[in-house]
Design a binder for these strands. Structure first.
Lengths: 151, 151
DNA sequence: ATTGATAATGAAAACCATTTTCAATAAGGT
DNA sequence: ACCTTATTGAAAATGGTTTTCATTATCAAT
């Protein structure tokens, strides 16, 4: 399996090396369905790979992000969170519901038909009007989750 | 004018004091139409009010944010950016187009009818399904601006 | 106006996620 | 196996933001 990953081929195609650390990090990301911080990944890794440093985790995440393999989110609770992109992960297209109190992040994939219609029009219009090449969008809703109670 | 601000009344109503620093900071924010970082505000202030420290700027922005007077954005170019909320500022409802290369932020208010329709349905649906009280949404598009050239 | 309780402030230090440095190590083409 | 060079870990540096603490300012009550 060492050379069979889609993401691995992508990296190697760009001249990067396929290392044990990089494999372990992507492996962690592909076996979780939560959003992990660099530190989360570092600790998750530490049991099986105590020799992979936090620095490497940061560097790898940066590399993966630049190559479109992971997405980085800064929801504002201190640390950035990461997840595999749709093309390389196993999660369907989704957006986020973030609790302002406890920081819980809920993924949702509902209402995507409505979103698609809205995005299609908007992206096209914005791109043309502002001469902007749009690569990505971010849609998030902030509020209070059930557990934290409404206010 | 010292006691005539909507935002000032809001703060006083919550037991907070109306200070020179807070007035100066809101004043700066209400006379700019760009998104300012705490440091930006600190320097803009420094000419007329050299006695207001960066610490106070941070503390004031936090207070204003908690009271719904400013919005804080973390677009990922290091420093957080702030602007008055729709209710207290002079800018119409808008969203952001962020350049991945140079960090330029373009406000846009186009296609709001489409957005409204989409949001209305989505927020209602999400709120019900996930028992989430939605207070805010954030819609941003990331890409490359005209100046930075497409890729 | 003055006073008094206490909220707000500035300066400096602390915090803490993330980056950089640098010498040692490992990947992978030959 | 060898060699070039990308990658790594540890430790130090960075830099935005927060905390500490003694001082100052706000404003309700007088």
């Amino acid at each position: 399996m060492r050379h069979g990953h889609k993401w691995g081929n992508k990296l190697r195609g760009c001249g990067f090396r396929l290392t044990i650390g990089r494999e372990a990090i992507v492996d962690i990301l592909s076996h979780t369905n939560s959003h992990m911080s660099a530190e989360d990944i570092f600790f998750a890794l530490h049991a099986d790979s105590p020799n992979i440093g936090l620095t490497t985790v940061y560097r790898t995440l940066e590399l993966l992000e630049k190559n479109g393999i992971v997405s980085k989110y800064e929801f504002g609770h201190g640390r950035a969170k990461f997840e595999l992109t749709e093309a390389y992960g196993n999660k369907p297209h989704h957006h986020h519901l973030i609790c302002r109190k406890c920081g819980t992040i809920i993924d949702y994939s509902d209402f995507m038909e409505d979103e698609l219609a809205y995005l299609k029009k908007t992206e096209a219009g914005l791109g043309k009007k502002y001469k902007f090449t749009i690569h990505q969008h971010s849609i998030s809703f902030f509020g209070i989750c059930e557990k934290c109670g409404a206010s």
